[in-house]
Each structure stands twice: as structure tokens, then as C-alpha cells.
Amino acid sequence: MNKYEFLYKLNQALDQSSAKERQEVVKYYDELIQDAIDNGESETAFIDKLGSIDKIVRTLRTDRDFMTNVKEKKDYQLQAAFSVTVKILGYLLLIGIIFVIGSLGFSLMATGAGMVVYGGIELYFTLNSIWVWNTVLVYGGTIALGLGLLLVGIGIFQWIVKESKNHLEKVMEFIAKIAQPKTKKEGESNE
């Protein structure tokens, strides 16, 4: 087999590799063969010495799997570190959101309750004196609105307590998970 035949067959056998890798490998062998020829070696004898193309591709593939593993491991470590940071930020954000929604629920409840009480008192006094429909409607409306706000507030408050309980449990689990390897290591050193 001469150089061109060899390189052509090698290129064909690398059909599963990326175009870049294919080009690189072919270039590598092209250069090797040329250097051998320049050094006075016989072209065909050198190519025979290179071994079968199947074997070359196999060696390449085994090593590429190894390199991908190394790379993936690195990526994984990076990902793990990244996800811890993201998780911590996420949980801080979550606590913030829980606080804001909780406050909203609470203020709605307080406003609603206030409106009901205020509307009730005003309506009571209005009904006990000379009253007009307009005034009764205003205070009645205030009570109804207050009741609505109170109910919405209670709903939000209940929902956030329930949800945050679930999420806070997750946060606690996460904190426990971070703390665990440390205690494990301490345990190992004690052994």
C-alpha cells in the first residue's frame, strides 16, 4: 500500500470521528510517512510497520473515550460546584420570596380585618342614627371588601405556610447534605 492509498483508507475508517479529528489524524500519518521517506525508509515497508488501519482506529477510539472521561469529570466537578452556588442563591431567593408573599398575605389580612371592623362600627352608628342609603352602601361595601381582602389574605398566608414548609424541608435537607461529608471525614480520621 502506498501513502495515498493508506491515507485514503484511514480517512474512510475514521468516518465516526469529527471532521477536525479526522483531518488531524490523517495529517499526523501523512507527516510521519513523509518524514520516514525523507529519512530514506521504504514507503511501503514503513506503512506495513504502522499496522492495520483497524487497529489504529481502535487505539484512537479507546484513548478518546479516556480523554472524554477526564474532560467530563472536570465538567462534572465544575457543574457540582456551580450547582451548589446556584442552589444557595436559589434558596436565598426562595426565602426572600416567601417573606414577601407572607408579608403580602399578612397585610391583606390586616387591611381586610381593619376594613371589616371599621365598616362594622361605622355602619352600627349610622344605622342607630338618621341614615341614608348612600352611607349604608359605602360602609356595607367597605365590610364586603374587607371580608374579601381578609379571605384572600388568609388564603395566601395558608398557601405560603404550606409551600414554604415543603421548600424549607428541602433547604434543611440540602444544608444537612453539605454538612454531612464534613462529619464523615471527621469520623474517618477518628477510626
Binding site: V25, Y28, Y29, E31, L32, D35, A36, N39, K49, L50, G51, K55, I56, T59, L60, D63, R64, M67
Partner: peptide
Amino acid sequence: YGYRIIQDVSSVMEISESTLYP
């Protein structure tokens, strides 16, 4: 370069062209 590396190294330990690339 590839060819010379093989020559240099093979004086100490056997190395094939296909192993050098990886």
C-alpha cells in the same frame, strides 16, 4: 516532531506510531 520523537523514545522503550498520537 512525530517521527523524531518515535526515534528518540524507541532507543529506550518500544513505541509505535499509533500509540504516540494519543
